[in-house]
Each structure stands twice: as structure tokens, then as C-alpha cells.
């Protein structure tokens, strides 16, 4: 009756495997339903210049990153040098300043640098809702036609840049 002892053992190992996989998942990583869809439209005042408007259409023509950030977001502060890095690699970076005040946001840029090509000032957070934002920082990779191809939730790390963002960006760049 070897099987009698084997079955519980196999079941136990299967359960441990299941729990192990479960533990390694990040519950904050909610798959975005927006991947592969058109980036939602918006038309916002520019953060740095009230008179200028920044709209979704301004991002088109070249693949680009849209980074959702706020001065009150501590992780954004840590992430900030990574954006400058991407800018140096030639990636256009747009910002969505989410539920912030203009003065705080400008002070943040003064302190930590400003890698953005343009920044939409989303004071009410309504554009954030359209993009399904729930945890800043969030970063979208949008192709030249305005389709969302990739979303990263949380801080961009050098690893994310090397393994996800830059390869996909180069591929999108080649497509256009």
C-alpha cells in the first residue's frame, strides 16, 4: 500500500507549491484593462505654465512614457532619478501631476530636477481615474498612435528599465 502514503505527500507538496507561488505575487499589481487600448483623452493645463494646455494628442507621433506622480508621493521622489535616466536614453517623458498643488509640485521639480517634456496638472484627479490610477507612481508606455502598450505600477527600478521599458520602447520605435 505505497500509494496510501504517496498521495498525502504529493498533495502536501502541491499545496506548498501553491502557497509559495501565492506568496511571491504582489497583490498591488492589478492587471490594467487599459493595456492594448487607446490612451484616454485629456486636455489639461500645463503644470509649469498655466496658459499652455497639454492634451493626449501632444504625446502622439513617437512612443513615449506617461508618468503619474505627485509631490506628496514618497516613492515618486525615489523614482525621480530613473526618469532622468530614461530621458537621457532618448525616451520622451510626459507627466501627469496627480492631485497635487501647483506650488508643491513646482517646488518638487526645483528640488529634484525636471525630466518632463510636458506635464498635465490634474488637480481633481479625474484624468487619473480615467487612467485607472490608484497608486502613484504609475507609468504608461504609449505608442506613437496613442495606444497603451505597457503599464508599470510603483517605482521604476533600473531592472524595470533594462528588462521591460527600454526593450519595448526600442521595438515600438522600430515599428514607427
Amino acid at each position: 500500500m505505497k500509494l496510501r502514503f504517496l498521495i498525502p505527500l504529493v498533495a502536501f507538496i502541491a499545496l506548498v507549491g501553491l502557497l509559495f507561488v501565492g506568496l511571491s505575487l504582489d497583490p498591488r499589481e492589478i492587471p490594467s484593462p487599459l493595456i492594448g487600448k487607446e490612451a484616454p483623452g485629456f486636455d489639461l493645463p500645463e503644470l509649469r505654465n498655466e496658459e499652455v494646455r497639454f492634451a493626449r494628442e501632444d504625446m502622439l507621433g513617437k512612443p513615449a512614457l506617461l508618468n503619474v506622480w505627485a509631490s506628496w508621493c514618497v516613492t515618486c521622489r525615489q523614482e525621480h532619478p530613473m526618469l532622468a535616466e530614461l530621458r537621457r536614453a532618448g525616451v520622451p517623458i510626459y507627466g501627469l501631476n496627480y492631485k497635487d498643488t501647483r506650488s508643491d509640485a513646482l517646488r518638487f521639480l526645483g528640488q529634484f530636477g525636471d525630466p518632463y517634456d510636458a506635464i498635465g496638472f490634474d488637480e481633481s484627479g479625474l484624468v487619473g481615474i480615467d487612467y485607472g490610477v490608484y497608486a502613484t507612481p504609475e507609468t504608461f508606455l504609449i505608442d506613437s498612435n496613442g495606444k497603451i502598450r505597457f503599464k508599470h505600477i510603483g517605482m521604476i527600478t533600473p531592472e524595470v528599465i533594462e528588462t521591460r521599458i527600454l526593450p519595448l520602447y526600442r521595438q515600438l520605435e522600430a515599428e514607427t
Partner: peptide
């Protein structure tokens, strides 16, 4: 809501 945040 589902269009923005998914079934989650």
C-alpha cells in the same frame, strides 16, 4: 469602473 480598474 471595470473599464478603468478591471474586474478587480
Amino acid at each position: 469602473m471595470v473599464a478603468r480598474y478591471g474586474d478587480f
